[in-house]
Design a binder for these strands. Structure first.
Lengths: 221, 221
DNA sequence: CGACGATATTTTGCATTCAAAAATGACCCG
DNA sequence: CGGGTCATTTTTGAATGCAAAATATCGTCG
């Protein structure tokens, strides 16, 4: 139960590891939206005391995953459909930028990594696996811009989107459609077509956002 | 001066206040780049113990203001000229987005706030004051997009840029030039000209970025 | 005189502890 | 039987304490 197995997320500082583990708990949907964060339980599970856990909570709160209520504990930040729209709108702009820059700046190493991520995606049509590999693919494109500030900004948005996957990755239709869009993205990337790549990425993001919003409405929160 | 107007960022939490105060210390340039963070001293100064201060340190580290070294304390994140370029490149994209959206979505209240911020800027040509009011002006434009995720992303980038002001706000020439660009921005905004506003904002950002980079090179950091 | 190494001091990171606030529940009164 | 008040328990937020690591100090030797 209290698996002391070290997760593969081996970052440097112990603090970073705690943040990563805690974020994983939130992303895995183990805790329902709006649920109180069980500090003591998590301390037991991670084998740490409350001090470092609370440090991680503050960081996650600053990132928007957790809501800190004065003297009343922290809760998992509820998913607000309106905010989801804003999130995808913002990410769309970043995607466009990624397309414009990656097309021009990608090195051979970047291209190889992107091709590999794309190929792996095709081999795993399973929605759950797809989500993870999808992240790798898009992140590889972001990295190809060679702008660390962009990568950081993108990571932050992407992590927030990831919270929503459980409502959309159950949809095989969208997964197939998504992969089709990726094919188009790759065509544009291989041709190093700046604006074409930018627009395809933005459109891909827009369609994903719509799928998510539709799923959110369908599930009736 | 740094008038702490009661913005929506004025959360009641003590933690948020500590983060804000600590950030202010960093932004004021009280601590040199790469300098060790004097935990004990800051605890005395803020009248708190190390626990809440360290929570704030972790948050600031996640934001990129502080570098956390394992077992060796935290240091003020050094300014990397290359990263400054990436920072402005990223911010340029966001500025463009702000222009496109603000032109369409700004309400009368937004417009009034933007006009007021612009007018105040004209009345205070003093570089030090200009910097603070300049932030208000651009933030008002960001708020007019009515996309909180964008505002949050913009705030984060803007805060990182603010660290650099001491190298550029000593330049009256650039201040005058900057205000001239603001005039053009206002013309485009009043006309609600989407792309014109977007391009003017992006160009303004680009010029500011170049001024900063030039100043950084000049000072030979 | 300078470099190296052992020891003392400080600093860091985390566990523990403690006071205050909120949630819970028991009790009383209408 | 329901509503409200007060005591009890739990949880939160922050100060303190403690072991380990790093830094500084000093003595010794080449």
């Amino acid at each position: 139960m209290a698996a002391p197995a070290p997760e593969e997320t081996e970052t440097g500082t112990l603090h970073e590891q705690i943040v990563a583990k805690l974020r994983a708990v939130l992303l895995n949907g183990e805790l329902a939206d709006g649920a109180r964060i069980p500090e003591a339980q998590l301390c037991l599970r991670f084998g740490i005391s409350r001090t470092p856990l609370r440090e991680a909570l503050k960081v996650l709160a600053a990132e928007g995953f957790i809501e800190l209520r004065p003297n009343r504990g922290s809760i998992v930040a509820p998913i607000d459909p309106v905010e989801v729209g804003h999130l995808f709108e913002m990410k769309g702009s970043v995607e466009h930028m990624i397309g414009r820059l990656a097309a021009v700046r990608a090195t051979d190493v970047d291209a190889a990594r992107i091709e590999r991520a794309h190929a792996e995606l095709g081999g795993h049509p399973d929605p759950a696996v797809y989500t993870a590999l999808n992240q790798d693919f898009h992140r590889a494109l972001a990295v190809a811009t060679h702008n660390p500030v962009l990568v950081q900004t993108y990571d932050n948005l992407q992590k927030r989107v990831l919270r929503l996957r459980f409502v959309v990755n159950e949809n095989p239709t969208r997964v197939a459609q998504s992969f089709g869009e990726h094919e188009g993205i790759m065509v544009a990337f291989r041709a190093r077509a700046r604006l074409d790549l930018a627009e395809r990425l933005e459109e891909h993001n827009r369609l994903t956002g719509e799928a998510v919003r539709r799923a959110l409405k369908g599930e009736g929160a």
